[in-house]
Simulated scan of single mutants.
Amino acid sequence: MVTRKEKRNREKEANYFFEFLKIQKHFFKDLMNNLKKVADHRHQSYITYGPEVLLFTMMLKNMTGLKSMRNMSESFNKEECIKNVGRC
């Protein structure tokens, strides 16, 4: 039997980003490919990130409960987050 303390410790150690990726790869295998197909009407000389990166980032923002673009920038511009998202 697992105690409450052990359960809390496991939850602290859980990497929810990778848990999300498991779910995404199992149920939404073509998600990134479908996001790449979204029409991008921006001028090509201004594009740094493709539509899949922008849309996936916005999805992550909403799933993590971040309320503003500023909070998203502060949270996602950390080296650990950049490495994790790069693994997608």
Rank of each mutant, 00 (worst) to 15 (best):
K37P: 01
R87G: 05
L66D: 04
L31A: 05
F27W: 13
F17R: 03
H26F: 11
F56C: 01
L66R: 12
V38F: 00
K5S: 15
I82W: 09
I82Y: 11
F27N: 01
C81W: 12
L60S: 00
K22C: 01
A39G: 04
K78M: 03
C81L: 12
A39L: 14
T57G: 09
A39C: 09
Y49G: 08
N77I: 00
F20Y: 10
E19G: 09
C81A: 14
N15W: 05
H43P: 11
G65C: 01
F20I: 03
M69V: 11
M63G: 07
T64Y: 07
T57E: 01
V53N: 11
R70K: 11
H43E: 14
I47N: 04
D30N: 03
G50H: 09
K29M: 09
F56E: 04
V38K: 05
L54I: 14
F18Y: 04
N15S: 12
L66Q: 04
K78W: 03
L54R: 02
L54G: 10
F18N: 03
F28Y: 12
N71M: 13
L66T: 12
S68W: 07
H43R: 15
M58C: 14
I47M: 10
K67G: 04
Y49W: 13
H43A: 12
K29W: 03
A39Q: 02
K7T: 13
N15V: 05
M63C: 06
I82N: 06
L35G: 01
I47F: 08
S75W: 09
N84M: 07
Y49S: 15
K22F: 11
Y46K: 07
Y46A: 10
D30W: 01
M58A: 15
Q44W: 09
S73F: 13
K25Q: 15
N9G: 09
A14E: 06
N84L: 06
M32K: 14
T3R: 11
K29G: 03
F18C: 00
S73W: 12
K78N: 01
M69F: 08
F27G: 02
E13T: 08
D40Y: 03
T57D: 07
K29F: 03
K12H: 05
T3V: 03
N33S: 07
T48F: 13
N62V: 05
T64G: 04
F17H: 02
N77A: 05
M1I: 13
I47P: 00
M32I: 15
E6M: 14
F18W: 06
P51W: 02
